[in-house]
Design a protein around this nucleic acid. Sequence first.
DNA 1: TGTACATCAGTGAACGCGCGTTCACTGATGTAC
DNA 2: TGTACATCAGTGAACGCGCGTTCACTGATGTAC
Lengths: 213, 213
Amino acid sequence: MPTKRPARRGRKSAYHHGDLRKALIDAGENELAANGIEGFTLRGCAKRAGVSHAAPAHHFKDANALLTALATLGFTRFAQAMRARQAKSSAEPRAQLVAAGLGYLDFALAHPALFRLMFGSRRPDFADAGLHAVAEESFAILVSAIARVRGRDPWGDPRAMEDVAASWALVHGIAMLTLAGSVAFQAALPKERWEHAVDAIIGRLVPPDAPRA
Amino acid sequence: MPTKRPARRGRKSAYHHGDLRKALIDAGENELAANGIEGFTLRGCAKRAGVSHAAPAHHFKDANALLTALATLGFTRFAQAMRARQAKSSAEPRAQLVAAGLGYLDFALAHPALFRLMFGSRRPDFADAGLHAVAEESFAILVSAIARVRGRDPWGDPRAMEDVAASWALVHGIAMLTLAGSVAFQAALPKERWEHAVDAIIGRLVPPDAPRA
DNA sequence: TGTACATCAGTGAACGCGCGTTCACTGATGTAC
DNA sequence: TGTACATCAGTGAACGCGCGTTCACTGATGTAC
């Protein structure tokens, strides 16, 4: 009766894999974490997934297509990380903005290779509709957090967008400089002080007495 | 009389190159700009320098050694870019800090591939004494700019170092997000507004009424 | 329910490519006498 | 100043490697009748 293809959940045929596409994405994540983007190869992903090196061609046109899927997954998790911090935080608008920033940093620290792929590589196809959508969605979290602090939509107000950009650049810079392994930066701002620093700095960047209309 | 080896300046023998080491560094810069770090090869550099692909081995152990030299050159120019802006700016401490930040951005925009090499790659040997020294020197420009604003050395004062880190992360984030090609970020902060934004944001980050002793 | 068949998702051998590396060599340069 | 020689910095052919890609194939699955 089911015209829909059976889900084959839990099924493990030695031959037909079941869900090689998903397995390759998982494998790609490990490959990325182990070898970095520079050492990322389709053959390596196939090996990690336990299939022959020609098998991925049935699911991904080339390595960049797999990297696009990985970047899409990355942005999904990235947005989740920001929302998770926001959910645990006070509903007060500035606390929500700080929480988004801390979620940004949580993600970068937990998934450095994905983070570099998302923000430092040209290999994923950023024109891909799915990737573009989820990247925009992540950005919207910051914009709406600023909007709530300001009490209005920052779009169209260059000075308000400057605040969006400043908050974004600040956390992005902290993440990048730390991931780059800069000893000098880590001495200036060790991870233990991130929470305090982001709170204090965003407090100064987007002061409570900011214009609200 | 001169026991010192002749400089061979201006000399162009077809066989002995004269200064292949320097020529390879120049070629490497072009190779980097054209192909990115991912597409950087010793053979490509040799070709650009007009020598056989085996020639570089006499000057650089491997590709990473050449990349280390390129990163060292990059940091030298980077410090120059910051000092150049400072020289053109008012001597007022906050103006000097803003100028350092704008010089930081000048460099990133002018030499995106070098910038990524310096801050986003693990291929250069950052333990190399020369590279380490010049990288530290760049960092010191920011630290001393903050020191002048604060009226004292920020080292040992976690809150003052937080200001150093914040200023640094801010301009670094602006540079990285712009170089990453983020359309959303560029919409929020187009390059034409960098100068205004950095001035305004650093004004809030490091307020004039900051404690001075 | 059984059978025949189309389709799909793998396999594994083969290929060409560009890379780094090695090696014997050679021509230019510098030095000792 | 001239000559012999050591050293240095290149050349170009050769090699092995891992990569992506192609291809004929095969076994498992789903479907038509």
